[in-house]
Structure formats: C-alpha cells, structure tokens
Amino acid sequence: MFSQLQNSFQKVFKDLRGQGKISEANIQEALREVRVALLDADVNIKVVRQFIAQVKEKALGQEVLQSLTPGQQFIKIVDAELTELMGQTHTKLHLSSTPPTVVMMCGLQGSGKTTTAGKLAASFKKQGRKVMLAGADIYRPAAVEQIRALAEQVGVDVYAPGTDISPVEICAQARKLAMGKQIDLLILDTAGRLHIDDALMEELVQIKASARPDEILFVADAMTGQEAVNVAQSFDERLDLSGVILTKMDSDARGGAALSIRALLGKPIKYIGGGEKMDALEPFHPDRVASRILGM
C-alpha cells in the first residue's frame, strides 16, 4: 500500500517550489495532512496535538525551507519524530538475577493476554529456560482450560488450580511452587478487566503485592482506538507497568494506539504479537511501526 500521504506532501510542496521558497503556510498545510493521518491511525488526539507542535518547530527550521526536496525532507522529520516517540531500541524482558523471574500479564478483555502468555512461554522455553504458566483468571468461562491447553501445547508447567481459589492466592502459590521447582520464568495470566472496575483493579494490586512480579506487562490490542492510552494510564497508575505488548499486529491496524501509549506513559513496547500461533511473537522495532502509522 503506497502512501497517499507521501503523494499529498509532494503535492503540497510542489507548488512552493514554483514560488522558489517554502512558506509557513505550506508547512501548515502539510501539518494538516499529518494530523489527519495520525488520527486515522488511532493516535490519541492529545498526542497528535503535541506531536504536531514538535514537528512544526523542526520543520520551520532551515532543513526543510532550503531543501530541494522539501516533501521528502518533511516526511523524514515526521518519521524521525515518530520513531523517537516510539523509543529507539528494543527493550528486553528484565530477567531477575535470582530466579524465578515473575512476569504478570494484565489488560482489557480479549486483548490477547492468555495467548501472549503462551507465546512468551514458548519463546523462553526455546532459549532453554524452565517456564511455568499460572492461570489466575477464575472468571472467564473455560479460562482455566485455555491456559492448561496452551501449556500442554507449548510443553511447559502449569498451575491453574481452578475457580474456587482466589487469583491472589493462586499467584502467591504459583510463586512458591516455581521456587521449589527451580523455574526460571513464571508467567501469571490474569483475567481481562476494565480499568474502571475498581474491585478487579484492586485485585491486581494485591497480586502484585503477593507475587512480587519483576515485569508487569500491559497487553494491548493494536486495533484499539482513542481510549487505549487512558486505559493504559489507569493500569500504570495502579501497578507501575514495566512494559507493553502489542497484539494482533498481523491485522492492518496502523498501530497509533501503540504510539500513544509509548508517548504518554514512556513505558517501552517490548514485544508484538503477529498471529494466533505460539511462535507469533517478535521483539518490537520502533522504526517499523513509525512508517506503518503514516501508511508508508
């Protein structure tokens, strides 16, 4: 899909070349195009506003004004700014020096937590580590069966004692079990919940207190719209997230939600999910998403 955006920049800047000089008005027009592109990509409106202001400042500098190819030059600035916002390099999962490393998954309903827990397990198992999954979702019908099935599929240990024991207790027990079994990586799968559900958010706070996770990962659906960042912020306020995993990147979503979460929370996106199978997890590369957001 070649960029409509790139074409419109070329057009915006072509006229000015005729005039011999690029004016602020031309840049204003180009910025309007960028604004639409970002909003169409689900970048949060607050982030869009800040972003446009930053790009404007840079674009009005010498580089673009004196360039023979102002269109390209402008895109370069936008692209660089986006990449900057997304974080520069891949941030790895923090592994504890005293095993087990405990990873806690959290997020909205259906975002992909359980599937991603399975994928992480598969990926670390492949690196030769001993992994255990813990099923702390006692609410969703057949959540226990789901995590057990994934554990079996991937070939790792699982602790999912059912729905009669509280999620806080499950996670505390799982930690103890993992220590005893010399597990390297323990992944806690929690139930999906809304950030405005106070009781369930409190449950996560208690899980954090009792299982003392090294990583708390917010799992977000790449197709999420404007609310993505408010949701992520609420989870972050309660739990102090260590990172984000973006799922369903195999869709044609532009991934503006990712940019917004990264920009407003400053927390790194650690992995992206690109499919339903257990091997569809990749380290996150900021630059690739930047051009995707612009539709290039």
Partner: peptide, 11 residues
C-alpha cells in the same frame, strides 16, 4: 465489533 476498536473497525 469490539467497541474499543478505533478506525480499523471500518476495514
């Protein structure tokens, strides 16, 4: 359609 989805819902 998931109500939390953004512009991708149209696609």
């Amino acid at each position: 359609l998931d109500g939390t989805t953004g512009q991708n819902a149209l696609n």
